[in-house]
């Protein structure tokens, strides 16, 4: 097994594209190293992208922020203006692992690991975030909800990797939030996770919304019907109930050691309501 730490995106692409035997990208390594140790993977090459400026920087862009794919949860949380703009995304990243893990774990890794239960993914989808991908065929910008295609599966082609994630600008009177359900208080994996982002118009009515849910399908899902239940009216109990029902309607989870089908569907709706109320409160106070 070979380890490389290129300095540029192009070097990383040529390493990844030029190696057979399933080369793997190393960002924080909090999933990759566990998979290596457990013997799930045996790559010939590991490409550490943490020496590349673009993957480790947080930069302002068009009123939003571009976050390098390898930026750790701890650095994200310490970024005050980003935390003010997208608190739901930052709190989702902050839920991953322990304090020690927070020093390493990245949103890029969380996304590319392609777990249906990844915490940042529903929050990023709700935020309308996009990813900058770079590969032998050039660069492209792709919405986060299009990256994962199934458990452990992504649209990334050979030699292609996620360079950064763009959290877009947003107007005033906007808020986002993320909640997950776990049986413990921390150090666990979401049984269900829900992200909501919404904006209020001058009239107090909901002008825009995005709702995403994780751990209830092979990938995190954007739920347009849930957003439609909110947009164009006052976000009252009835609207929230309708939104929660729309979330439950798209859930197609499995029974496994972390939860049953019925339980996940039920709790997805409960969390959706709670998350929506937090996002609403945040929108009202900005």
């Amino acid at each position: 097994m070979r380890y490389e730490a290129p300095q540029t995106v192009d070097q990383a692409i040529s390493l990844l594209a030029g190696t057979h035997g399933n080369p793997r990208v190393l960002a924080g390594g909090t999933d990759l190293l566990v998979q290596l140790r457990a013997g799930f993977i045996d790559p010939e090459l590991i490409v550490d992208i943490k020496q590349i400026d673009e993957t480790t920087a947080i930069t302002a862009e068009d009123g939003g922020f571009r976050v390098g794919a390898a930026v750790s949860g701890a650095r994200l949380k310490e970024h005050d203006t980003l935390s003010l703009l997208w608190p739901g995304v930052v709190e989702a990243a902050d839920l991953i692992g322990s304090t020690q893990i927070q020093g390493r774990a990245s949103m890029g890794g969380n996304l590319c690991n392609a777990s249906p239960a990844a915490d940042t993914v529903p929050a990023l989808i709700a935020a309308g975030a996009t990813c900058a991908l770079a590969g032998p065929g050039g660069r492209r910008e792709v919405p986060v909800e299009e990256i994962c295609t199934g458990p452990g599966q992504t649209i990334l082609t050979d030699g292609e990797f996620v360079v950064s994630i763009l959290l877009p600008a947003r107007g005033s009177r906007s808020g986002d939030a993320y909640l997950r359900f776990i049986p413990r208080t921390e150090m666990d994996i979401a049984v269900v996770g829900v992200g909501v982002s919404l904006s209020l118009g001058a009239d107090g009515q909901c002008s825009a919304a995005r709702v995403a849910v994780g751990a209830v399908a092979p990938t995190a899902l954007l739920v347009p019907a849930a957003a439609e239940a909110l947009v164009g009216g006052v976000v009252d109990d009835a609207a929230i109930d309708a939104m929660a029902a729309a979330v439950r309607a798209v859930c197609r989870p499995i029974d496994d050691k972390r939860g049953t089908v019925a339980y996940r569907i039920e709790v997805a709706g409960v969390l959706a309501g709670r998350v929506c109320r937090i996002a609403l409160e945040r929108a009202g106070s900005t």
Binding site: P183, R184, T185, E186, M187, D188, I189, K257, R258
Partner: peptide, 9 residues
Amino acid sequence: LDYRVPVCS
């Protein structure tokens, strides 16, 4: 991870 002993919190 899935055999859940309590954590401190």
